[in-house]
Amino acid sequence: MPSPHRRTHATALIAAATLLAAACGGSSGSTEAETRTDDGHYPVTVENCGHEVTLESEPTDVVMLKSAVVPFLTSVGVLDHVSAKAGVYPDGYFTDETAQQIADIDTLTDRVDASGHLLISKEAVVERDPGLVLGQTDNLSHASLDEVGIPSLEASGLCTSNLPEPGFQQIYDEVEMYGQVFNREDEADEAVADLKQRVEEITSTVTKGERTGAVLYPTVGGGTTYAYGNKSMTDPMLEAAGIENVFGDQDERVFEVTLETLLAKDPDVLVLLHSEGAPQEVEQAVTNLPGAESLTAVREEAVHTELFNFAEPASPLAVDGLERLIDELGDGS
């Protein structure tokens, strides 16, 4: 729990930032969240990325920094608790209703760098005096926000330390955590039951064949290509689809990979992730590389392009991603 001097520090920063915003004609806005009667549920302490995070009451005026947290919020019915967002939220992830809800949330910034990482100042978040921040950046880490008395949670699949074992159980556990945080445990239990049933149905016809695959994040326009190892959600996703990850021996979430290494591994299937841009351009970022035509996946046209959050990090969207992967590339039978 934040100490009194930290909250005092936070108040001073917020006051200064609010005066600055007022001078510039800005406003912080507020959420009209539907809250529950506190029946002794709070305070609640949850574990996240190796940190204990304590919530003294149901968090409102939540600031959301990553699209990856949206499916957790919708799973337990608390997207209305978010009063401000930052980053990019592609329509392709969400239902029309959810996309409209997101569009109606105040935007702090949608600036990202070439790798898709959010560019935002600490002051822009602190001035909102949020009850909770969801998602973290280099300058908005757990420690940085804790200094000013603001609790924060990161998507567990993006933890830089204490990364949990990736898999569908990780998703179920995180939905349950959000149920605790927002006093929506019954909703979380129902959401988890639905997800488990969907995974069972989606994988019921999958046969573990001899297909191999790789999940890549290419840079459109030239640059570094990244691959995903056994610390990412893509590894259990491929396994659930009956595909062996050729980089499953890499004890990393994501790492740089060369075309030479990819040619040596020669996967039967390629899954290409992207955060924005046209899927065709993403595919060409790999298929147009000199020598890429020698890859089995390219020759056999077994290349599946997908929006990033359908595979990474672990979230309910990964269940949709698994279904889309099997629909596109088959179940191995």
Rank of each mutant, 00 (worst) to 15 (best):
S57V: 06
S57Q: 15
S57N: 10
S57M: 13
E58L: 10
E58D: 05
E58G: 13
P59E: 04
P59Q: 05
T60N: 03
D61W: 00
D61T: 06
V63M: 10
L65I: 07
L65A: 15
K66Q: 09
S67V: 04
S67W: 10
S67Y: 03
A68Y: 01
A68S: 15
A68Q: 04
V69E: 14
V69A: 14
V70H: 08
V70F: 13
F72K: 02
F72L: 14
F72E: 03
L73S: 07
V76E: 05
V76G: 00
G77R: 04
G77F: 09
G77M: 09
G77T: 00
G77P: 02
V78A: 12
L79F: 14
D80E: 15
D80L: 13
D80G: 03
H81F: 03
V82Q: 01
V82E: 04
S83V: 00
S83I: 01
A84S: 02
G87K: 01
V88F: 08
V88G: 00
Y89M: 07
P90R: 03
D91Q: 07
G92I: 00
G92H: 10
Y93K: 07
Y93I: 02
Y93E: 06
Y93V: 00
Y93T: 03
T95I: 01
T95W: 05
T95P: 01
T95M: 03
D96M: 11
D96L: 07
E97P: 01
A99H: 02
A99C: 11
A99D: 13
Q100G: 14
Q100F: 04
Q101V: 06
Q101H: 13
Q101R: 08
I102W: 04
I102F: 04
A103Q: 13
D104C: 07
D104S: 14
D104Q: 11
D104I: 10
D104P: 05
I105N: 09
I105V: 05
I105E: 08
D106M: 10
T107V: 01
L108D: 06
L108V: 14
T109G: 06
D110A: 08
V112P: 02
V112T: 12
V112D: 10
V112A: 02
D113F: 12
A114Q: 08
A114L: 14
A114N: 13
A114W: 15
S115I: 00
S115F: 14
G116M: 06
H117M: 14
H117G: 12
L119C: 01
I120M: 08
I120E: 12
K122P: 00
E123K: 10
E123S: 15
E123L: 15
A124G: 11
A124F: 12
A124N: 01
